[in-house]
Design a protein around this nucleic acid. Structure first.
Length: 258
DNA sequence: CAGATTTGACCTCA
DNA sequence: TGAGGTCAAATCTG
C-alpha cells in the first residue's frame, strides 16, 4: 500500500531532549518515574538495536499484567525465533509523550508459556496502576491446563471490577480469567492469553481504569512508585497455585530479571 | 462511530 | 544488506 509515509520526523522523536530528560538515565536512576523499574544493571548493552534507549528484560509468565496499559502496534516474525515478537507501547504515548514500550517474545511452548519482555524507557505518563487482582491458578475441570482466576483483593480494584458488571463471570475479560490451554491452541503462535491477543482488547481493559490522573510530580511520587514496583515484584506473591499445580520457575532469577 | 488490532511496507542500524 | 523496529491504512470490534 503506497502510503505517503511520514518518516521519522513525526511529532515524536526519540532524540528529543525533553523526552530523554523526562525518562532520565535508567541506568543511573533505578528509581523509576512510574511503573516497573529497570533493575539498574540489566541494560542490554550491545544487544539492543537502538542502543541509546534504556531497556531491561524480564522473564514472566504473565507479560500482560505489569500495571500499565499497552497498545499493540506491531508483530513480527523474528528470524530463528519460534514465536513472533509482539510490540507494545504505552497507551498514553500521544497524550502524555510517554515513551515506554515493550517487546514481547514468547520463549517456549510450555504450559503456561514463558515470555521474555523487553521494556524500553520508563513510563512518564503517570497513569494510575492497574489494580492488581488476587490471582488463583487452578486446573481446569476435565481439561488440561490452568485457569487463572482473578479475585478481587478488595478495595478500589474491587469496586472497579464490579462496575464492569461481569464480575468473575466473563471469560473474555482478561481480568477475570486467563486460560492456559495446553489442549492444542491451534495457532501455536498465539500465546495462551487469548483474551488479550485474539479478542481485540487492550492489554488491560481500559474501561477498568479510573480517569487518567494528572501527571504526578516526578519527585513526589514515591508512594505510587513503591506501590507499582511492589505490584510487579509481588506478582508471585499474589499468585496462588492450588494443589499439585506448579510452574517451572527455575530459570528465572530473583525478580524475574536477568 | 471511535478506538484497538492487524499486517505489509518502510526505515534504521549493525 | 538483512534483521529488527515502527508506521499507518485497512480492518475489526464493542
Amino acid at each position: 500500500m503506497a502510503s505517503p509515509r511520514m518518516k521519522m520526523e513525526q511529532s515524536f522523536d526519540f532524540g528529543e531532549p525533553s523526552a530523554q530528560d523526562a525518562v532520565g538515565s535508567a541506568s543511573e536512576s533505578p528509581g523509576a518515574v512510574f511503573g516497573i523499574s529497570p533493575p539498574e544493571s540489566s541494560p542490554r548493552g550491545g544487544r539492543n538495536k537502538r542502543r541509546d534507549r534504556p531497556s531491561w528484560v524480564k522473564l514472566t509468565y504473565t507479560p500482560y499484567f505489569d500495571g500499565h496499559l499497552w497498545r499493540k502496534y506491531g508483530q513480527k516474525k523474528i528470524k530463528d525465533a519460534e514465536y513472533p515478537r509482539l510490540y507494545f507501547r504505552c497507551s498514553y504515548r500521544e497524550d502524555r509523550q510517554c515513551l515506554a514500550s515493550k517487546l514481547l517474545q514468547q520463549k517456549n511452548g510450555e504450559d503456561p508459556p514463558l515470555y521474555e519482555v523487553t521494556y524500553t524507557y520508563e513510563h512518564t505518563c503517570g497513569a494510575p496502576p492497574v489494580p492488581f487482582p488476587d490471582i488463583v491458578a487452578e486446573p481446569q475441570a476435565g481439561r488440561e491446563g490452568l485457569v487463572l482466576r482473578f479475585d478481587s483483593p478488595g478495595g478500589h480494584g474491587d469496586a472497579q471490577m464490579q462496575q464492569q458488571g461481569h464480575y468473575q463471570s466473563t471469560p473474555r475479560n482478561p481480568f477475570m480469567m486467563l486460560s492456559f490451554g495446553s489442549s492444542r491452541q491451534t495457532h501455536d503462535q498465539q500465546p495462551a492469553f487469548r483474551s488479550d491477543l485474539e479478542a481485540g482488547s487492550p492489554s488491560f481493559p481500559t474501561e477498568l481504569l479510573p480517569a487518567p490522573a494528572p501527571v504526578p510530580a516526578i519527585n513526589g511520587d514515591t508512594d505510587m512508585f513503591s506501590t507499582l514496583e511492589s505490584f510487579a515484584h509481588d506478582f508471585d506473591n499474589h499468585m496462588h497455585f492450588s494443589d499439585n499445580t506448579h510452574l517451572p520457575y527455575n530459570n528465572i532469577s530473583d525478580d524475574g530479571y536477568y
